[in-house]
Amino acid sequence: MAMAAMDSGRRSLIGLRIGTFGLMVLALVASMLFAIGAGRFSVEVPRIGEILFAAFLNPDAAPTQMDERIVLLVRLPRVLLAALSGAALAVGGAALQGVFRNPLVSPQVLGISQGAAFGGALAILFGYSGVVLLGMAFILGLSALILVGLLARINGRTEVITVILAGMIVGALFAALVSVVQFVADPNTSLPAIVYWLMGSFSTATWPRLWLAVPGMGLGLFSVWLLRYRLNLLALEEQEARSLGINPDRERWYIFIAISLMTGTSVAVAGIVGWIGLVVPHAARILVGDDHRALIPASALLGAAYLTFIDTMARTLTAAEIPLGVLTALVGAPVFAVLLRRHFRETNHT
């Protein structure tokens, strides 16, 4: 009888879950349609449907009409890239927060973004772009994370506070190295390229750039999704996890590599877009709870919808494009402040 009560309670919970995810998918679709339609040349939603459907039926036909060209060549790759990056950054944040048992860490707080930025800036300095830039961003992002891991591990234990402090140190170090690269860069060619790239923007999104980003982000997202139950187990204390037959030291690195892959790729194609990995997982946690089997897909959906929307705001609010980082920080900083206060109030209670 007790078991039957347990089952019926769970069934209503599952119903609620499906409804929540339905709304998130709806939000993503709405955000993407709005993004494709909005702009100086606005396109109505039914017309967007028409254009997309026609292109789907006949993908090889070159778009001829003005609105077709805008939707298919300009806005669609940009919207898809923004959505993919949003999903990757949010999932990266959610996974890191699980591994560190702390809702206040993100790829940026841990210096991964700055490491990736240094890698990318170095690539631009030497005149590389595309795959080389992407590879450099990934490798240096991962290096930053390894450095944080080594610095924060004291007597075989990794405390959250030392991780955050180590992240700040490593982030500052790589930010300084980016400045060094800017200092030595050619002010006529590579310096402006580095500066614009770092500001964070999807304005340069094209289909080739999207295809460049898909493998890294796709692989990273897929890996974290595969490891979603592992994240629940990795959130346990080290000794407890080991007693349950898990190897936390090794499994944590699988997650770290996936996160570096996503963060490096996103920095490579769109510069540093901060705050997504901090704000979105928190919102997702409020909606679906701490279980990573729900949290990871929810973070992906919300991150995609959120960054698509913010990017659309960035290019439509004023005549010139507002740098993305400015908008995400304007929203993110106050949310982070509230999070921080709430977190320490809760910890002090127990």
Binding site: L227, Y229, R230, N232, L236, L244, G245, I246, E251, D290
Partner: peptide
């Protein structure tokens, strides 16, 4: 144990089965 887990009691108990799951396994 599990001091930070905002999970149901049953979910915490299910974790006892972790050793039987593969790296990508779900309970």
């Amino acid at each position: 144990g599990a001091s930070q887990a905002k999970l149901s009691g049953l979910e915490v108990v299910v974790m006892g089965r972790a050793a039987r799951l593969g790296l990508f396994g779900q309970p």
